[in-house]
Design a protein around this nucleic acid. Structure first.
Lengths: 163, 163
DNA sequence: TTAGCATCATTGACACGTCAACCGGTAGGT
DNA sequence: ACCTACCGGTTGACGTGTCAATGATGCTAA
């Protein structure tokens, strides 16, 4: 297939004008979609999508608590990012941090009642926004295609410099 | 079609588990793709994608200069965002700002030679990265599908609260 | 024992975005 | 002429993200 379409996978270095146009549409639209979701969530609940990820993970954790590093890897964040974010969330009373009693060097992050409350209030409008802005915008076939595209892009991202 | 698939477009409020999984894959992967491009560009040229957009627009403008508001609408940024960004770019010597001689209240943004230089150096690696991380990660059919998905999502974003 | 050494987490500096307030100038209506 | 309203642009405050440096703690090998 790569042989049968000369120039497609071959020595060409740069995207064509069409590919570039699609690239720009794609990356800008997905970014705009993210921002829209962000501001919807903000308006509906005064939470950011970062807050939401953290609260979701803690809500599902047993005891409504997780080790910081565990939380970081669970939601795929760098520890530094999480630490900054937890600081801001702690100031707003959404979570608490305490030295883990069991593990010596481990910081436990725990959901406060205010945090659990905020998460419960945010869930429904957030999911509704996802449905309106993503699910309902696409045909069922396009949703499947979007999943496959994400998988293909992710695979490429995971092998940073292969070839 | 919407009638033939009961429940699909009907009274349901929330995404299904499958839709939600695809949503997360999709939004997280596209965000990660953006970050990867950003850091590739940063490493190759010490420019951000924001810098790149500004420099691209100025490079293509006649006289390598544009009015600030014109530039903002050309690349789709808020005025405030552009103003902050131009301040940072000016500090690095990539652009200059001056009162427009012709239009009284208009600020002209002009490309410096350093800015033009930086842009020229960034173009090739940036386009190559787009090809590696996006174009080459997808089949030709998937690229077309990505374009259609972007168009559909954009259409929904442009009518914020329609229905 | 102690000298590294990796790991967990935090911190500071900085770039980036958004929001709301502000400023100066121009245009319109009275 | 004067008041007002808008328009182009800037600024400040703040939340957010990355990177590099730092503490603090446990592990391992001399």
């Amino acid at each position: 297939m790569t042989e049968a379409t000369p120039g497609r996978r071959g020595g060409r270095q740069l995207p064509t004008a069409d590919e570039l146009r699609i690239w720009r549409d794609f990356i800008e639209t997905t970014a705009a979609l993210g921002s829209r979701l962000e501001s919807r969530l903000q308006g509906d609940s005064s939470l950011s999508t970062g807050d939401y990820s953290v609260l979701l993970a803690l809500s599902e954790a047993e005891g409504q608590a997780m080790r910081s590093s565990e939380l970081a890897s669970h939601i795929g964040w760098e520890r530094s990012r999480l630490s900054h974010h937890l600081g801001r969330m702690e100031r707003r009373g959404l979570i608490r941090r305490q030295e883990s009693a069991t593990v010596p060097r481990g910081a436990e992050v725990l959901l406060t009642t205010a945090g659990a409350e905020a998460f419960r209030g945010a869930t429904f409008p957030h999911l509704r926004a996802i449905r309106e802005l993503f699910v309902d915008a696409l045909t069922p076939e396009q949703i499947v295609a979007a999943g496959e595209i994400a998988t293909a892009l992710r695979a490429r991202l995971d092998v940073p410099r292969a070839q």
